[in-house]
Structure formats: C-alpha cells, structure tokens
Amino acid sequence: MVKIPSSELTPEPVYLSRRAFLGGAGALSAAALLAACGTERFVSGTTTAGPGATAGLTDELGDPANSLDQITNYNNYYEFTTDKEGVARLAKGFTTSPWEVSVGGLVAQPRTFGFEDLLALEQEERIYRLRCVEAWSMVIPWLGFPLSRLLALVEPRPEAKFVRFETVYRPEEMPGQRDRHYPWPYVEGLRLDEAMHDLAIVATGIYGHALTPQNGAPLRLVVPWKYGFKSIKAIVKIDLVETMPVSLWMALAPMEYGFYANVNPDVTHPRWSQASERRIGTRARRPTLPFNGYAEQVAPLYAGMDLRQHY
C-alpha cells in the first residue's frame, strides 16, 4: 500500500485560482483526504475476496463494492504485463513521486501541475462500476475529483473539441513498454463534452487510500460508462485538441476498438460478447447495462448518434 507522506498532503500555496468554487478547497480537501485515510473503510490487502470485506459499501444499484484485494490483484495494465495477476508484482516500487502532469494544447492557461497541486483539489468518493471490455466487472470506491474541474483551470479555447491523454513512457520501469508490438505510450481520448461530464473523474485513490501503482498511481482517468481501457492510467500529459485523438487500441486494432467505447450490450466486440458480464467475486453472469448503468446521466451526450456505428 502506498501511503502519501504527510508532506505531500500539505496544500500547495502556489494555487491561486480566481475561480470561486475552488476557494479554500485546498485546505479542506487535504483534511478530507487525511480523514478518509483513517476511516474504517480501508480493507486490508490480505483480506480474501468477498463482498463482506467491503464494510457495506455498495454502488447506487445496491451491489457491494469489491474488496481491495480483488481490485489490486486483477489488473489490465499492459505497460507492465498482459498477465492480470502479474501487474501488482511488477508495478511494485514504480516511482510515482515526484509526478507532474502537463495540461495544454488549445487552452488559454497551459500549466504543469505537480501531483500535490491536484491533491489540493477537493477529493470525493465515487463508487463506480468498472466494466472491462473482456466482459468482467467490479465495483470500485474511487477517490478523486471531476476532470471538469482540472480542465476549467486551464481554460479550454473554443476550438478545443477533444481531450487527449497520455500515460508516462518509462520502459526502464514498465517492462511491457519494451514490447514493440504496441505503439507506446498509451493514449486515450474523450470528446470535450464527455470530459466535462460530472461522472468523468480523475482518480487519486481507492478506499480512501492513495492509488496503488497497479491501479494507475498516482492518478488516472475513470469514465464509468465506457469500457475500462478508456480510463487511462498514470497520466503525465493532457492536451485539448481539435481533432479526434487516436487511442493506442484504435491504432493497434481499428476494427475492434472505436473512439467512443461506450459500454453497450447491443454492440458486440469481435472477441467478447458484451451482452453479459461476470462480476468479480460473484458466480452468476449478469446482463450488461447500456452505458454500464449510467444511461440516465450520459445518454443525452450521444443523442442522434448511431451508437452501432460510433462504437
């Protein structure tokens, strides 16, 4: 478990936004984060799988959150390995501090944020379903902040239509990145209105603790209505752009991976049927919900679009 040293939690006074909603958020959120770390919610990494281990946390549909053990030992993170159980071991000791994220492109105020600057934003818990394109899913209590808040700080220009995210490229620490089969670094993208949607967050923690390296430390995207691969990990670069970014998966297999990648039981993937899914920790398959159960909130983003074509 990565612990954030208290020095890293000290609010950075560098942050001088005029925006009202950020006033004083730094001190408040740091306190909130520290408080969260001390709650009973934290589940020991040695706890075995099972909904009982999650102290009664559920998503809004009433399904229990997965245990930290499940969340931190079954990861798709090809920068380390394609073996989901091997990621935790290989990612151990991955350097997540110091960490900077440059946010630029078509913005009025391009900026490089230190990770501490981002921790100074108010952190909140979001219990989301994560649906992998491989047809398994989990319920994860993230800690983070809406991506829209970060984007507002850099003031996107009117020409900006998409947001492009990039993962750190560090082959000396990420053995999977030495595999030339993939066009590293990992790239993902969102349409600007998707990025500004309140459900899209930048996650910095799970169960009230800092993210573990295998889950994308120190910060990652979480877009719960899209397949998991859209939720890019270990972000170092965010650019606002005019044209649709080409993600790593789109570049590698354009017939299989579209830009939108919204969870959709009616659009089948060449490899995995998306009609149903296996919730980690339970036995029976369950039907996959349109937009992963977030249709009410996000379906309007795609009004008038043929989602079979824009998969």
Binding site: T268, P270, R271, S273, A275, S276, A284, R285
Partner: peptide, 20 residues
Amino acid sequence: VIDFGLDLALISQAIAEKRY
C-alpha cells in the same frame, strides 16, 4: 455450465455472435 449457467439464450447468442 459454470460460466453461463447453462443459460441457453446467452450461450446461443455467444455462438452466433462470436466466431471463436
């Protein structure tokens, strides 16, 4: 049996949808 619980509708859908 174990994964699809002998749900014939889901299984036949998987066969029809997935060439693998």
